[in-house]
Design a protein around this nucleic acid. Structure first.
Length: 873
RNA sequence: GCCCGAGUGGCGUAAUGGUAGCCGCGUUCGACUUAAGAUCGAAUUCCGUAAGGAGUGUGGGUUCGAGUCCCACCUCGGGCACCA
């Protein structure tokens, strides 16, 4: 037999698989009863640097699963594509002075070449590229769908905006229970009397995609807006990563997505998903739902009524002042008639600016008295309203009632000499009746903060909370309200390289959408795709573009990636983002989510994985997708670090290129090693030293084929081959481990099996071929080559999956450990079916046991069948 | 500060509450070879010549029995961070 030549074998089979379309996915129509299975990878940014050895880790894992499922007879959808809009592609293009479109094409080629040598079973006919107009046509289409929606709170779902218009015309703003940020109320007749422009402004406050303003990072020297990851900390505040120029906050017109409307559903639906628990937890924390109380309180000597929000209202009876955000929209109205109004406003502005400039580093507790008081709804008298640096306008109502029983409120009150009072729980008589005994659980720790003894684990606080809430609501002091930490997502970039937003504004300021027939609205060619210098997108300097009134902002990087998994299902559809029949076929309605297996990095927890869920839910509300969640099962691959323990990066010069590893050791070895090196989700250092173990294993498998060929004669009749148990164990282990992403232990099981087969003096061809089938998902080329060597004409990758015999997993005799007082003292070889009493007697009879007992009388003997005997003396 | 997760040989790691260290790397010895490499065989947690003893970050606890369960602490990694 020839020596193992990975180069020849891998090239041969990659070519053959392509020619024979071995990995072609069948459409719903042609599947003919074959069950679907959708295995998806997070598609990459085709950056200029190409792949390092860490990138394919996730792809290899998903490929192993896809291959196994294909062998099991599923119609597998295992696609790959490119997420090529966005900052990295644009920066690469600017740095290399080429058009981003050209840069993307070049980089895609590099990626495709690098991926192709690793032997993935992708169906390249279904590839997508977010920058392809035929693709982003549908990104724009979905955007318009979202833009033309409002969120009906009573139905808890998105509905067409025309239906809201109809409600307004009939019943005014009170007619709809909607998620919005409007401050105004209007009657039906007022609505009908509004100008088109005014109506547009009102509707904008309800749409799920809306225009607004937000703070951006503005770099005056560079004349451009910077993303958060383009900024680093300088000695005097934030500076640009490139060039270290100062960066400041600037308010700019933006588009937003009202993801906040879906806060509850985004939390609730996590329960049905098979995702890593910590990713769910990150999303829950990010959304940050808290239930609290909304207190309505009249402002003294005015007709203003304000609402305060408290999520921790346990100590509401101790409230002695009110804090309002320094940038709160109500501030100006509130200060009407106050003598030093302008002075107070100026101070509020100073605080706001300081807070924005310093960001996280601003820790000071600052404030100023407004001169106003509220009349406490709980009967605690008049409480002063302070502007406070810690109050956030976007959380709750932006106004909070404060007491001594909060560390931060306490510090503020001490600084400004605001009177405080402490309550021992509960102060109110009626409340006390309901929750008696609770007061003993709290003590004043000296700072004014009420603490609950640890042994109660927060239970008491919870019960007190519930009791207080019930009481306050019942007596009309407050109503329940939910608040979220999550903010609406900014959906605009002042950049060139993104999907154009398909809207235009006429000279009257009325917005028009680009009709479906005219989609895609293509990105125009420009002379300079670098930032314009004014902070606007380069599109603002394209006369034909601005003359038509088109929106100059482009979509952010996450637009195209929020729905690409839908396109793979039906990538060439011209009439819809995907056909209904295909979606129905591929998206399993028995699950909450559609894609069966999704593999990618954990760093997308609060970005892509949240945005996709949000878009999917909007589409679901319109019945355009069959499942309410996009991804049923999610697994994160660990990051492969360099051998020095740092991240692989050009900067450290520690990058290992997969091309080199494939060249030296072969794709099969690379694949096997990346699966074997440790748990799939663990971050592990790369070790070119250790990879030899995987190579050796493959070579041993290779040489073993020869041994089988020569051993054909003579020993076939051996009835119970010594390796049989190991083989059946391996089949069981590999089958189960692949399903559970336990690739490292699956490889280990195959190694154990091979060790046993090598020790045996005869291995049947049939058994060896079963072994090859186990190996096929991990090392597809060498498995295929050997498969062919044994006369198979059809590919191993569609050959079926071996099954194991439960009865062959156990042997008749077992070795059990005999312990005396839990210490190992002797071993026993016994027959598996020996009775408990017989085993115990045998153990006691052992000489070693008698020595260890040293005359002690056994009090108790524990027998764990097949494992051990423990003699307790 | 708050919320997750993890700590096991020289290294990567493995262990349904039941013989801790499977599998692999490395190392040592042996076979083959003029030699090197490759390959094959044996050994390899630590202390001890051995008998034996110790041992899964630290200290407690539950249990006949704990790497695994419970409590406290230490270290590392991840997420959030004025969210009332």
């Amino acid at each position: 037999m020839k020596a193992y030549d990975h180069k020849k074998i891998e090239k041969k089979w990659q070519k053959t698989w392509q020619e024979k379309k071995t990995y072609q996915t069948l459409s719903a129509k042609s599947a003919k009863g074959k069950k679907p299975f959708y295995v998806l990878d997070m598609f990459p940014y085709p950056s200029g640097a190409g792949l390092h050895v860490g990138h394919p880790r996730g792809y290899i894992g998903s490929d192993v699963i896809a291959r196994k499922k294909r062998m099991e007879g599923f119609n597998v959808l295992h696609p790959m594509g490119y997420d090529a809009f966005g900052l990295p592609a644009e920066q690469y293009a600017i740095a290399n002075k080429i058009h981003p479109r050209k840069a993307v094409l070049d980089n895609v080629k590099t990626f495709e070449r690098q991926l192709s040598v690793i032997g993935f079973s992708f169906d390249w006919n279904r590839t997508v590229n977010t920058t392809d107009p035929e693709y982003y046509k549908w990104t724009q289409w979905i955007f318009l769908k979202i833009y033309n929606s409002w969120f009906d709170l009573s139905k808890n779902k998105a509905r067409p905006i025309e239906e809201l218009v109809a409600v307004f015309a009939k019943k005014g703003s009170e007619g709809a229970s909607a998620a919005h940020h409007s401050k105004r109320a209007f009657s039906a007749s007022e609505w009908r009397a509004m100008s088109a422009l005014d109506q547009q402004t009102v509707l904008m406050e309800y749409r799920l995609a809306y225009e607004g303003y937000s703070e951006v990072n503005w770099c005056p020297e560079m004349g451009t807006v910077l993303a958060n990851d383009e900024i680093v900390d300088g000695p005097n505040g934030p500076v640009s990563e490139r060039g270290s120029y100062p960066v400041e906050k600037r308010s700019m017109r933006q588009w937003f997505m009202r993801i906040t409307a879906y806060g509850d559903r985004l939390i609730e639906d996590l329960d049905g998903l098979s995702w890593p628990e910590h990713i769910k937890e990150i999303q829950r924390n990010w959304i940050g739902r808290s239930e609290g109380l909304l207190f309505r309180a009249p402002v003294k000597d005015s007709d203003i009524v304000i609402e305060t929000f408290s999520a921790h209202f346990e100590a509401c009876h101790a409230d002695t002042f009110v804090a309002i955000a320094p940038d709160h929209p109500l501030l100006s109205t509130l200060l009407e008639g106050v003598t030093n109004k302008s002075e107070v406003l100026a101070q509020a502005k100073a605080i706001t600016q300081k807070r924005e400039a310093l960001g996280d580093k601003y820790k000071e507790v600052e404030g100023v008295f407004t001169g106003r008081y509220i009349v406490d709804p709980l009967g605690n008298g008049d409480l002063p309203i302070w502007i406070a640096s810690f109050a956030l306008k976007d959380y709750g109502t932006g106004i909070v009632k404060c007491s001594a029983h909060d560390e931060r409120d306490f510090a503020f009150a001490k600084k400004y000499d605001i009177p405080l009072k402490a309550v021992m729980f509960p102060r109110d008589e009626a409340l006390r009746a309901q929750v008696q005994n609770f007061e003993i659980c709290f003590s004043d720790s000296g700072t004014g903060v009420l603490t609950e003894p640890k042994e109660f684990k927060g239970r008491v606080a919870h019960e007190v909370r519930d009791a207080v809430a019930e009481y306050a609501v019942k007596h009309g002091f407050a109503k329940q309200k939910v608040s979220y930490k999550i903010r609406d997502a900014v959906f605009a970039r002042q950049r060139y390289w993104g999907e154009p937003i398909p809207l235009s504004k006429d000279t009257e300021g009325i917005l028009h959408e680009v009709s479906e027939k005219k989609l895609p609205l293509e990105l125009p060619n420009v002379k300079s795709y670098e930032p314009s210098g004014t902070g606007e997108s380069p599109l603002a300097s394209v006369p034909t573009w601005t003359r038509a009134g088109y929106e100059t902002n482009t979509m952010p990087g996450w637009a195209g990636s929020s729905w690409y998994f839908l396109r793979y299902v039906d990538p060439k559809n011209k009439k819809a983002f995907a056909g209904e029949a295909e979606l129905d076929y591929w998206f399993n309605k028995k699950h909450v989510g559609g894609v069966d297996v999704y593999v990618g990095g954990a760093e997308h927890a609060t970005g892509h994985l949240l945005y996709s869920r949000f878009w999917h839910k909007v589409l679901f509300d319109y019945g355009l997708v069959p499942t309410k969640e996009p991804f049923q099962l999610l697994r994160n691959q660990g990051i492969i670090l360099a051998s020095d323990g740092r991240k692989m990066s050009k900067r450290w010069g520690n990058v290992v290129n997969p091309d080199e590893i494939v060249g030296t050791y072969g794709a099969d070895t690379l694949r096997l090693y990346e699966m074997f090196m440790g748990p799939f989700d663990a971050s592990l250092p790369w070790s070119t030293e250790s990879i030899i173990g995987s190579r050796r294993f493959i070579e041993r498998v290779w040489r073993f084929a020869e041994k089988i060929e020569t051993a054909q004669n003579g020993k076939q009749n051996q009835s119970e081959p010594s390796y049989e148990q190991a083989l059946h164990k391996a089949i069981k282990k590999v089958t189960e481990d692949i399903e559970n992403f336990g690739f490292n232990t699956a490889v280990s099981a195959m190694m154990i099996c091979l060790n046993e087969m090598e020790k045996a003096d005869y291995v049947s061809v049939a058994d060896y071929k079963k072994f090859l089938q186990l190996l096929a998902p991990f090392a597809p080329h060498v498995a295929e080559e050997l498969w062919e060597l044994f006369g198979e004409k059809k590919s191993i990758h569609v050959s079926g999956w071996p099954s194991y015999d439960e009865s062959k997993l156990v042997s008749d005799t077992v070795t059990i450990m005999v312990q005396v007082n839990s210490k190992n003292r002797a071993e026993l070889q016994i027959s598996r079916d020996m009775s408990s009493d017989a085993v115990k007697a045998l153990a006691l009879a052992s000489e070693k046991v008698q020595t260890a007992l040293a005359g002690m009388i056994p009090k108790k003997i524990i027998y764990v069948p097949g494992r051990l005997v423990n003699i307790v003396a």
